[in-house]
Amino acid sequence: MDPEVPSVPSTLRRARPLAALLLVPALSLTALAGCGSDEDDQAGGSTSEATATAGSTPGATPGATPSAATCETQEAGAGGVEVTGEPGAKPELTLPEGEPAPTTLTRQVLTEGDGEPVESGDLLVAGYLGKTWKEGTVFDNSYDRGQPAAFPIGVGQVIPGWDACLVGLNAGTRTVLTIPPAQGYGDQAQGEIPAGSTLVFVVDVVGSAGADAAGEADASQEELPAQGPQVEGELGQRPTVTVPEGTAEPTEPGQQVVATGSGDPVEAGQLVVMQYEVVDWTGQPVESTWETGTPYGGPVGVQGQGSPFDGLVGVPVGSRVLLTIPAQGEQTPPYAVVVDVVAAY
C-alpha cells in the first residue's frame, strides 16, 4: 500500500498543493485515515485518557462517521499483546491466538521517552508496524523502508485511533495501539486490511514539530546574488521571498543557502522536516507551511523519486535555503521556495 502524497501514507494522507504541482514523492505509512468511535471496555487497567475528534477531511475513510475517540492507557502486555525488540528498531509483534478482537481503543506504553511531548496540530515523525488482529497479517511497516513517516496529528487527518492515542506522548516513546474498527477504517477495506478489522500498531515516536518550528535564529547569514529572487525576514521567523521584475526564469533546479545552520548535513534518503514559503515567478504566493500552521516532512534525494526539495541534500540542519524550480510544461510556472530545514531523520 503505497502513498500518493508526501509524508502521509495513502490511507493517512492530506493533499498538499505544492506536492501536487511539483510531484513531491509520497512517503509510506499505509494505514491511517479513517473515522469513528467505540464505547465498549476491554480488560486491563486504564490509568489515563486522551481524546481527539475526526472530521470529514481529506484522507478520511469514505463512509466514516465523524466522532470523538477516547484512548485508554493499559499496562504493557495487557490482553496478551507482546512486543520484542529495541525501541527504534523493527519490532516483533505477537498477538494472542483465538482471542476475540478487543472493542476498546487502547495504548500500552512500552518505553517512556524523555523528549518533547507531541501536541495536537504538530507534524509527528514516527516509525510504525501495523498488524490485523484476526489474520495476524503485517500490512505495512516503516522499518523495512529505513525511514520514519511524518504526518499531521490530532487534527483529523489520520484515523481517530492515531489522533487520540499519540497526542501527548513524549519523543522517544514506544507504544502499542489497539484500534477497533470504529476508530480505524470501520466497514471499509483498505488494501490488505479487510473491512471491519481491528488493528494493532507498534509506534516509535521519533519527534514532532509545531507551528513555530524554524531554522536556527543564529544561523550564519550568507549573501544572495543581487540579480535573483530575494529573501527577507528575521532568521527563526517566517520569511518573505520576492522575484524582481525581469529576473530570468530558471531552466534547471537551483539552490542558494541563505543562512547556514550548525546541524549535520542532510543526507540523500533522509526524511526532512521543514517550513517553506512558495511564490511563483510573478511573486504571487502559492503555498506556505507557516500559513497553514503545520510543517512538512518528506524524503529527499531518493533515486527514482524526484522531489523539488532534493536540493536540500548536503545542507546543514538549521539552515535557510532558497530553491528555484523551473516551469514544468505550460501549466506549472517556475517557483521560488524558501525552506527552513528544521530536522532530518
Rank of each mutant, 00 (worst) to 15 (best):
M1I: 01
P3M: 00
P6M: 00
V8S: 12
A43P: 04
E49R: 14
G63I: 01
G63R: 02
A76T: 13
V81M: 09
T84N: 12
E86F: 00
A89R: 13
L93H: 06
E97F: 04
P100M: 04
P100D: 04
T103R: 14
V109W: 07
G113Y: 08
G113N: 10
E116A: 15
V118N: 03
S120V: 08
G121Y: 09
L123I: 07
A126L: 11
T132R: 03
V138Q: 14
V138L: 11
N141L: 03
G146C: 09
I153S: 10
L169C: 11
L169K: 11
N170S: 15
T175I: 12
L177Y: 03
T178S: 09
Q183N: 14
G184F: 11
Y185G: 06
Q188W: 01
E192S: 08
F201S: 07
V203N: 07
V206P: 00
A209F: 14
G210V: 06
P225K: 12
V231N: 12
E234Y: 00
P239H: 00
T242P: 04
V243C: 05
P250H: 04
P253F: 09
P253Y: 09
G261T: 07
G261M: 05
D264Q: 14
V266K: 15
A268N: 03
V278P: 11
V279N: 12
V286E: 07
W290E: 01
W290S: 02
E291D: 15
T294V: 15
G298L: 10
P299W: 06
G304F: 05
Q305M: 08
L322R: 03
A327V: 11
Q328R: 14
Q328F: 12
G329T: 07
G329M: 12
V342T: 13
